[in-house]
Design a protein around this nucleic acid. Structure first.
Lengths: 306, 306
DNA sequence: TCTAGGCCATCGAAATAGTCGATGATCTTG
DNA sequence: CAAGATCATCGACTATTTCGATGGCCTAGA
């Protein structure tokens, strides 16, 4: 036995043994209780003696007496073991006291539709958790890969199997226009749609709306007369003009102004999915947040169907 | 790897590895730093994963990213390691904040001579430490063996090699008597001493004063005219009489009354020693207390010589 | 797009550490 | 003093940990 060996090779089980020996004031009783050989306890105490630089237990007739320092060390070991056991077992997550942050990378669409209610419920349920939003801008997958966010939300189609995915709602494109627009009068024919004065949302060139691919498949080409980098001024741009924009239905609903919403002559579904990585897969906070997000999306979908 | 193995086989060194991997965000850098093989770190993290029920680190391009739970666990591990290191290394004992108690088994002699000053200095230096005194009554060795006391003080001569011993002062016997006693007039001859009216202290029959053995060796027999169980009323008993008592010099000095102190015609040294056991040998408090006791004894000895 | 280089996971062999059963030394008890 | 109980120690055995080599995956730069 080295005189002053380090505490490093002492494991938690050995600390438990120390406490038990202290309580029972007996090596052999401890061995019986732990169902091991008595010499195993002797050896364990021997290691503890070296690591803690104290005899810990000294022979005293039949049995052993604990040193002063041993008593102090046992008191501390008890505290530590309790704390360890609490931490080692999966934490019962409690949103009310939860700390930390949830970072979501998404686009204008989600920020206008899902996020407001999600934020409200997050703040109500977990007041100490911070919510951080990033603009995905077509790079949601990068944000996720580089751990810049915890969740990517949107119609991204992240590549690879390295991420978890959960579908949370399905949207589809609709057409919005000024109520005075002739197209607002009835069903819109495909040819009429093709001839309309279109506003395009370019997403700063980072992403192409899905309906364009659907049009291409139908060999229809439409050219924009107005191009906007995002949806934020769309409503004001269209109002009082003959412009039409093709945008997700949820987004159209979210526009409180007086634009007319019309069905498209073709249906293009938009699958809004939630992606996350192994890093946050088992986190209580993030599991809870993901559940909440799915719930909000479901409620949003219901409202849409009604 | 078992899915939910216990934390028991995790040792402190492995926790240190966890923290280092977290700080460096790299297994191989950790391996280099610790001068071990990279697979050793992989294996260590694997064990931690099982014990803590969390992936802890997930691959993230070149390098790894820590999970939320990992960050929390590392925070806790840091605290714990700091505490452990503080406890594992011999404690820097600070009397001012020290808690605990010091139990001393001794006799009237020491209680009258050394203990008062020891108590005063103990209370001044370590206000939160309790001092407990036991009456040795010839059983100091038993008190020590059975852990009923921390220190035995006195001329005991504890048997066996199982105890530590430190000599703290040497006393010797003197004779005390009323100042009017004829013997008080000059040096006392051995024959006159033998004929005197002796008071014996019997120590309740548990212990024989050492000077009796010295007299026996000189073939001198003295018979007591008064026998007392201890020294406490000796002064009042002798005052105004022709009685003489043979007692340790320090004790005689401690008697503030007007008794005459005379040297004996023979010198019998009394070695006052301090005994303790392995149980308290390394205790900071007890080491300090023993040092203090020796210091007090030394001062007492000086005062005696002067 | 492809390649070089870095990273962690995994494997079998070797080294290390822990456990066992038996025995020894010491103490208490009757 | 003998019987019974305690912890310490020993050699043999077993389990765990470490090593070196290899493989798969990712990034960065040509």
């Amino acid at each position: 036995m080295a005189a002053n060996s380090s505490i490093d090779p002492i494991d938690i089980g050995t600390l438990r043994t120390l406490v038990l020996v202290y309580d029972l004031r007996s090596f052999s009783a401890t061995a019986k209780r732990l169902d091991v050989n008595q010499s195993t306890i002797s050896y364990a105490v021997e290691r503890l003696r070296g690591a803690l630089h104290d005899p810990l237990f000294v022979r005293n007739g039949n049995g052993v007496a604990a040193t002063e320092r041993c008593a102090a060390l046992v008191g501390w070991a008890r505290d530590m073991i309790g704390e360890i056991d609490g931490l080692a077992s999966p934490v019962a997550f409690d949103p009310v006291t939860a700390q930390g942050s949830v970072t979501i990378s998404c686009n204008y669409h989600e920020r206008q539709t899902l996020i407001p209610q999600f934020s409200a419920r997050l703040r109500a349920g977990a007041p100490q958790v911070r919510l951080v939003l990033l603009d995905a801008a077509g790079h949601g997958d990068v944000h996720l890969k580089q751990n810049q966010c915890d969740i990517v939300l949107g119609p991204v189609g992240v590549v690879g199997e390295s991420f978890f995915r959960r579908h949370i709602l399905t949207d589809h494109y609709v057409c919005v226009m000024d109520p005075a627009n002739p197209l607002a009068r009835g069903r819109i024919a495909l040819s009429a749609y093709a001839r309309a004065e279109h506003v395009f949302i370019t997403h700063s060139g980072e992403w192409q709306p899905l309906y364009l691919a659907a049009l291409k498949a139908r060999k229809i080409e439409i050219a924009p007369v107005v191009s906007l980098p995002n949806h934020d001024s769309l409503e004001r741009i269209i109002a009082g003009t003959r412009l039409v924009a093709t945008i997700p239905h949820h987004l159209a609903r979210a526009m409180r102004g007086g634009l007319h919403v019309a069905a498209l002559p073709f249906r293009v579904p938009i699958s809004i999915d939630m992606y996350w990585s192994a890093r946050t897969a088992k986190s209580g906070l993030h599991k809870w947040a993901r559940g909440l997000l799915a719930e909000v999306a479901k409620a949003c979908d219901k409202g849409h169907a009604a």
